[in-house]
Design a protein around this nucleic acid. Structure first.
Lengths: 214, 214
DNA sequence: TAATTCTTGTGAAGCATTTCACATGAGCGG
DNA sequence: CCGCTCATGTGAAATGCTTCACAAGAATTA
């Protein structure tokens, strides 16, 4: 399996995983691509094609075993395990994310907090003591952090990310509204909430309706 | 101009707008598609093609006037004006968003807050008194709200959104991790932070590097 | 004014993604 | 056990998006 998987496919895997989790809770045993597609507003062919990149998980004439497919999806997405996540920047957004239960529910555990504000360093948020940003690289290494969430002002984000990369972290979720440079082996995702509002304002002004909802 | 504009193009318009704002601050007067592309890690052809959907804004041999193009972009995106935004759900995420200055900076003003918790109703957040969710439809109409941010638990999100739609709102930014049903004329965007972390965990587990960073 | 340089705007080509459509296999009822 | 129904998995077609490549316009210099 050396074919490049598209970003859209990966996002849809998350959707499938979520739908399957719900189905399992509803005690549904098998599900067809048709039903799965309906639940996530996709086409059955799309569902089957996405899954086919990773193997043949279904049974002709019957569909997919909900529990089994969910487990497969979690393996493919890498969420069949726990992740140690560090959060940098304990401002508005940062504080909210520390308390955001959805992350832990999916196995993403925020276990380190960093800030540069002396008043925040040493303080306790949800049982985690805030570390000094000065020790970022050292502590990320020591604690085997694999994913970092950056929630600092745009002006300092690049410096922070340089340190994060130096610490060997390969996955970064960035909330600062700025285009960050990272080496090609690092996966960077941007969460730019203003851009989403701008999308909406574009839609309203131009009477535009998106084909697919992300 | 009746061609369907792709989601990617709209997102890139936001990037152009941001880059142009910075250039203007740096007192740069003109910019080429090449330079603009470099700043946002795109190709010059992509920049020109995107702009060409909306008109011819450049001068051959010279490039684009920074100030003028920025103004054009803001008109196209609909951010040359202020927007009245309501925020529903004053939990972790909701509270953070009320204080998030980036929104107001782009002209998105949160002017209404709603919650169903009696302890929160009537309380004051950044100068805004929290309204009872029961009055949602009425107050959204009265206050001419055009954009709504939904930051409530997934279990109640659909009911809330039904009311929002009934109030005639045409643009919704949803933070609840659930697939919401809205009529076709309503533009719904989902901000699913867990999905972004899942993307990262997929990338780490599969040694996958995305072609383009969103 | 003519030659040169620069960079836009845009059809056409090249890729990528989505959808179609059907062969194939599994279950089930008679 | 045969025929019928159902639903997968997948090449091929269709659609959509990005990149190429170049004609053409604008400034500048001689």
């Amino acid at each position: 399996m050396k074919k490049r998987i598209s970003e859209s496919t990966i996002h849809r895997l998350s959707l499938y995983y979520r739908a399957l989790s719900l189905l399992e809770k509803e005690n549904v045993v098998t599900v067809s691509s048709k039903e799965l597609a309906k639940r996530e507003k996709l086409t059955p062919a799309q569902v089957r094609k996405d899954l086919s990149f990773f193997g043949s998980f279904g049974t002709r004439g019957l569909g997919y075993q909900v529990a089994e497919l969910r487990s497969r999806m979690s393996h493919i997405l890498g969420i069949n395990r726990d992740w140690r996540v560090a959060l940098i920047g304990i401002g508005n957004i940062g504080s909210a994310l520390v308390s955001y239960k959805e992350f832990a529910r999916q196995g993403f555990h925020i276990v380190k907090l960093f800030d540069n504000d002396q008043r925040k360093i040493g303080s306790n948020h949800k049982g985690i003591v805030v570390s000094d940003i000065k020790d970022l690289e050292k502590e990320l290494k020591e604690d085997n952090i694999e994913i970092v969430i950056v929630a600092v002002p745009a002006t300092v984000a690049q410096y922070i990310v340089d340190d994060v990369v130096a610490a060997g972290v390969k996955a970064i979720l960035n909330f600062a509204p700025i285009n960050l440079r990272v080496p090609p082996e690092v996966c960077l995702r941007n969460e730019n909430m203003s851009m989403e509002l701008e999308y909406l304002s574009f839609a309203v002004v131009n009477n535009h309706t998106p084909k697919k909802v992300i």
